[in-house]
Structure formats: structure tokens, C-alpha cells
Design a protein around this nucleic acid. Structure first.
Length: 603
RNA sequence: GCACCCGUAGCUCAGCUGGAUAGAGUAGCGGCUUCCGAAGCCGUUGGUCACAGGUUCGAAUCCUGUCGGGUGCGCCA
């Protein structure tokens, strides 16, 4: 696979023989190669790109090559004449049915329906939908979710959890070795307060499961206790010290607390259909033993210096206009460590022990400066080799309809558990209304898949880096670009096969691309792997959402225009269209699975 | 003060390495069901791409500046 360079599309310069490949290239790659060959044949310098893109408008072909204008400029010739030469040298025998030059030198390519039919047939038969496995898998560490165990999971954890999980699924599907890392907050001063509270409540309430039944309440009790009771506050402070020095009794309480809190998170993950397991947890405390060595190492390298009693690294790379370096505290006065230190230690673990080639952090955009500091320092200190890709894949904040951070009516944080429950309930009301005859257990399952899917999709389909507005109305209205629309498209295909009484596997006839609707749909279906590549490269799941919505939408259009099981439809046309339907369903199912969203037979 | 992100239709958002007449959804308006699931489809109204310069065959996209909104900036994570 190509290097994980982000942010730009690298026209593939690689050369290979077609017969060596198990899977064919996608359309874009194929045309890119063909046009590059033609360009070379007419003397265009080899560093100039072919600029292949799907055409945006009907009438401009299916694909277009925009290379002629730029190349003519570089060569000092006329763009239309150059385009004419390129087209003359362009060999698309059997692939394209028409190649035209338009405007200043656009090359418009119309693909051959027979060729498209063959490609669709291959994809429909293929277990991987013609999505190639990467030839050289990377070790990809994905840092996501990372809730604070001191508190209950709230909406602020949703984006990291959902987006990170989607990328984990996607990269795994492409054949990479994905290593999930749940960097939970399980260390710090607040744990003194929490275990002191736990100790007291254990006497009164028996076991920790009872005491920690509601983490949020528990935290508030502890906080209030801490604020109101000086003796308790002193005890909490003492407990922190004892905990951090390895006191056995403190560690036991701390473990009890962690186990109970983690159980809560795991329940949320299951409810959310997120693939994180307890074994993926590497909390802050995991790196405690490496914190002092990290500081020591940075001191030895002369990178860390004392400033006001603290150990600070000044980063010239991140200096402002006046040249003032960016300060980064790695050890407090008094000796305590900070999360910067922990992140550096975690980075060393990921590189040295996990052998990461690519490390992806799905963390709030507000921590951009911090991540930049960590990355810069880790390079300077040679903790991380240049060959390892470090990526902070920032995301925006979830806002309420008022445009301010999403809160409850009373101004508190919204618990994830309650949000998900409400989503399932709202979905349930709609499903029962639309389809009251379904058995109640099936309604329950559909409601769960639709409700959870709606919440996840609403998040995933927005550009990752922007803030987004959370709205029950738009996500559960079930209209437009939503999870239910995609799920609905899937059930309609299933419905057709039920009605037809045939299994998709039994269909082996040729696929006939006979109408505009079939052609448009076919081309879109064949772009699946292109989209996955781009999502993997840029960590932008919304591109996959947009793609799946286009598939579903084109399918609806096709469905209206191209009858399948109706009277007067010839058997070969019917079977061809059924195969096309089947590929639609499988593409939607596979795409949604990569987003962590489930489908159902009917809804 | 400095740094980063953002500003596109009434609302929510796309717009891919700069490409042709800036696209969806929703809201509004008008149609479609003796016919494969109407959670659907078709049509239509609606934009000075915040503003001003610059780069060039071509700019929503790249550069500079201005205005407006958000976030962050040495001992929380």
C-alpha cells in the first residue's frame, strides 16, 4: 500500500503487470495508467499527472482526464491539439465506447456497458466485492475513545469512539494489522478522592457494584464530600500519595473502582456495537514506570530544562511570530508528572513494543497544540523514527441546536447511556407505527439497530474536523442522508429476493447494462474500493457515508425506472437486474459494517 | 497578544490532486400508488461561496489582508 501521507491524492506512479494482480484496479487507477501511457507516447514529461476524475455532469462522459491543459502549458503547446494527440495514442479498446475532447481540452471518456457489466459480475461473485487486500500491511495503532474512568461516559466521548472504531474496522478490512488502544483516564489526583469515598461507602453499602451503580452520582458525592469535609479532603490527598507510592490497600481499592467503571464502559461499547474489548485498555497508569525515565532521557539530551522548579521543554519548531518557543511542561515542581509525560511514554510503548508504523489519535481538536507538542518532541528526542506516521485526527465539538456545546436542559453533560436509550425508544416508536404487524421481538431488534445506527451515522456523516449540531429531528426523521434510509434500501433488496424466490448465488447470467440508470448505478458501485482507499488515507468516514447514500439514492432511482419482477420483463433482464440489486445490498451492508452499523431483513 | 479551526441556499451540510453551468438533504410549492415496500420517486423555487486584493487559460478550493464566530496558549487531563 502507498505511504500514509495524508491530505493529497498521489497519482499512483507504480508500475505493474496486470496479470500479476488477483484483483483488477479500480476504474480510476486503470484510466490513470492508460492515460499516463498515452501521455508518455506523445512526449509529455512523465512527472505530469493524468488528472482522472469521475465527471460531475451528465454529458461530460463518465470519467474525464484533465491533463491536457496543464501539460500544454508546461510544454508551450496548444491544449486542444495536445488532447487530440493523447486521445489518438490512448488505448481503451474494450473499456470505453467513446472518447471526446471538449472545451479547452477536457478529455471525456464514456465507458462501455459490456465492460461495466463484466466488472459488476466479478464484484457480485467476489466475497470481498473486488476490494483488494493491501500487499504490505502496516501495524496501525489506533488511539480512541479514552474515557475518564472517574466519570460516566458522556456525549463528549461519542465522536472519538465511533469514528475511531470505524477506521479500525476499515483498516482491518483492507488487511492492516490494527492495534486498538483505549487510553482510559485511570490516574491522577481525583482518584484519591474517589477511593476514599469508595472505602467509606463499602462499609455502608456492602460491595462496590452497589456503591458504583451510578458513577455520576458517586462522583458528585465524593466531590461534595471533598469540598465540605476538611478531614475527608485531607484523607483524599493522603490516599493519592499512598496510591502513587504503591500502597497495597490503596491499589486494591483503586482496582475495584477501575474494574467497576470499566464494566460500565464495556456495556456502552456493546450497546454501541463498538469493537473495543477490555484487552484493548492501556490506561494512563500503564505507563507509570516509564515517566521518570522519559524525563531523565529528555534531561540527558539537553531538551528538558528547569524553569520555575518544573521541567520544561521549549519547542522552537512551534514558536510564534516573535520567535518565542512553545513551552511544554513534562514535570511539575514537586515532581509530579503530567499527561504530556504519559503521552510520550505511551508513544515509546507503541513504537518500541507494538512496532507501530502508523499511529492514529482520534482526539478532540482542542488538544491540537498538545498533540503537536508531543509529536514534535518525540521526533526531536528520537523516540519515534521518521518512518512512523503520527496523526492527530482531530474532530470538532458536538453542539446543541443553540450552537453551544451539547448539554442537558439543566446544563449538565448528557450521559451516553441515556442518549442511546432515547435513540432506541424513538426508533421503536417509529418502527411500530410504520410496521405494527411485526412480532415484538423483531421490532425490538430493529429499533435497536435503527436507533443506534442513527446516532452513529449522524456523527460519521459529518466532516470530522468541523463542529456539528446534534439534532434528534434530523437524525431520526429517517429522511435524507441517514442510517435508516440506507437500511431501508437494504431491506428493499431483501424483499425483492424474497418475492423472486431465488438465491443470489444461483444467478450466473450476464449482466446487461441497458439503461442510463443501470449504467450510473454500475459505475458508482465500481468505485467502492476508491472510496475506501481515500477514507483510509484521510481518516474521513463521511466520504464513505456520502458514497453509500449515493448508492442507495441511485438504487431507488433505478428501482423506479427499471422493473424487475413485473410482467413482460425477460428472464435475462430480470436476472441481470437481480444481480445488480444484490451487489447494491452487499455494498451497503459491507459499507455500513465498516461504519459499525447493522442491517436487517425487514423494517 | 499569539496560535489553530471555521464562514457555501431559510436550516443542516457536501464540494476529492485548482477544472466545464457550485451540489445534496430538509423546509416551501406541484406531481406520482389498479404495478417489485410511498421510511419512496419525479419536477420546481432558493446562493455576491463573509469581504477585498493577488497568483493563472481557469479559484468555493492556493497566497495576503480585513471583518465575524469558535477553540487553545508553563505546573488539570
Amino acid at each position: 500500500m502507498a505511504s500514509p501521507t495524508l491530505g493529497r491524492y498521489n497519482s499512483p506512479p507504480f508500475v505493474f503487470s496486470y496479470s500479476d494482480r488477483i484483483y483488477p484496479m479500480n476504474i480510476r487507477e486503470l484510466l490513470n495508467q492508460k492515460v499516463l501511457n498515452a501521455m508518455a507516447a506523445v512526449g509529455v514529461p512523465s512527472d505530469l499527472p493524468a488528472l482522472i476524475a469521475p465527471s460531475k455532469k451528465a454529458g461530460f462522459g463518465d470519467y474525464q482526464a484533465n491533463c491536457a491543459m496543464g501539460a500544454a502549458k508546461a510544454m508551450g503547446t496548444n491544449p486542444r491539439e495536445l488532447a487530440t494527440k493523447i486521445v489518438a495514442a490512448l488505448d481503451l479498446e474494450g473499456i470505453a465506447e467513446k472518447i471526446e475532447i471538449a472545451g479547452p481540452g477536457f478529455i471525456n471518456i464514456d465507458l462501455k456497458p459490456e465492460w461495466l457489466g463484466e466488472q459488476i459480475a466479478k464484484a457480485q461473485r467476489d466475497a470481498r466485492l473486488q476490494v483488494e487486500q493491501v500487499s504490505s500491511p502496516q501495524n496501525v495503532v489506533i488511539d480512541y475513545s479514552g474515557p475518564n474512568l472517574a466519570k460516566e461516559m458522556h456525549v463528549g466521548h461519542l465522536r472519538s469512539t465511533i469514528i475511531g472504531d470505524s477506521l479500525a474496522r476499515l483498516l482491518e478490512f483492507q488487511g492492516h494489522n490494527v492495534i486498538r488502544q483505549n487510553h482510559v483516564g485511570d490516574w491522577g489526583t481525583q482518584f484519591g478522592m474517589l477511593i476514599a469515598e469508595l472505602e467509606e461507602q463499602l462499609g455502608a453499602k456492602g460491595d462496590e457494584a452497589m456503591a458504583l451503580k451510578d458513577l455520576e452520582v458517586f462522583y458528585q458525592q465524593a466531590k461534595k464530600h471533598f469540598d465540605d469535609d476538611e478531614a475527608f479532603a485531607n484523607k483524599a490527598r493522603e490516599y493519592v500519595v499512598r496510591l502513587q507510592s504503591g500502597d497495597a490497600q490503596m491499589l486494591k481499592l483503586w482496582e475495584q473502582f477501575k474494574t467497576s467503571s470499566l464494566h460500565h464502559s464495556t456495556e456502552i461499547y456493546q450497546q454501541l456495537n463498538v469493537t473495543l474489548k477490555d484487552t484493548d485498555v492501556r490506561g494512563e497508569s500503564f505507563y507509570n514506570n516509564d515517566l521518570a525515565p522519559v524525563v531523565k532521557e529528555l534531561q540527558n539530551q539537553g531538551l528538558a530544562v528547569e524553569s520555575d522548579g518544573a521541567q520544561v521543554v521549549f519547542l522552537q519548531e512551534l514558536a510564534d511570530k516573535e520567535g518565542n518557543p512553545s513551552p511544554m511542561i513534562i514535570q511539575k515542581q514537586g515532581g509530579g508528572f503530567l499527561y504530556a509525560t504519559t503521552d510520550l511514554a505511551a508513544l515509546r510503548y507503541r513504537v518500541n513494543t507494538l512496532k507501530a508504523n502508523r499511529i492514529m489519535y482520534f482526539i478532540d481538536a482542542r488538544q491540537s497544540l498538545h498533540m503537536q507538542q508531543v509529536f514534535t518532541l518525540s521526533r526531536n528526542a528520537k523516540f519515534v523514527d521518521e518512518s512512523v506516521s503520527l496523526e492527530h485526527l482531530a474532530f470538532g465539538t458536538m453542539m446543541g441546536s443553540d450552537g453551544k456545546p451539547f448539554k442537558t436542559r439543566t446544563g449538565g453533560t448528557v450521559k451516553l447511556a441515556e442518549l442511546l436509550t432515547e435513540a432506541v425508544e424513538r426508533a421503536g416508536a417509529l418502527v411500530s407505527e410504520k410496521n405494527p404487524d411485526l412480532p415484538s421481538d423483531e421490532i425490538a431488534e430493529i429499533s435497536r439497530k435503527v436507533g443506534i445506527g442513527s446516532v452513529k451515522y449522524a456523527d460519521l456523516c459529518k466532516t470530522r474536523t468541523n463542529d456539528y449540531i446534534f439534532s434528534w429531528e434530523s437524525m431520526l426523521s429517517f429522511e435524507g442522508n441517514t442510517a435508516p434510509y440506507l437500511q431501508y434500501a437494504f431491506t428493499r433488496v431483501q424483499s425483492i429476493f424474497r418475492k423472486a424466490g431465488v438465491t443470489p448465488e444461483s444467478l450466473t447470467n450476464a449482466i446487461i447494462i441497458g439503461t442510463e440508470q443501470e449504467k450510473t448505478l454500475a459505475i458508482k458501485l465500481l468505485q467502492f474500493s476508491e472510496v475506501l482507499d481515500q477514507v483510509a488515507r484521510e481518516a474521513m468516514p463521511h466520504l464513505l457515508c456520502t458514497y453509500l447514500y449515493e448508492i442507495a439514492s441511485l438504487y431507488m432511482t433505478f428501482y423506479e425506472a427499471c422493473p424487475i419482477l413485473k410482467d413482460g420483463i425477460e428472464a435475462d433482464v430480470r436476472d441481470s437486474r437481480l444481480r445488480l440489486c444484490h451487489l447494491v445490498a452487499r455494498t451497503i451492508q459491507q459499507g455500513l459494517e465498516l461504519l459499525g452499523i447493522e442491517v436487517m431483513e425487514r423494517m
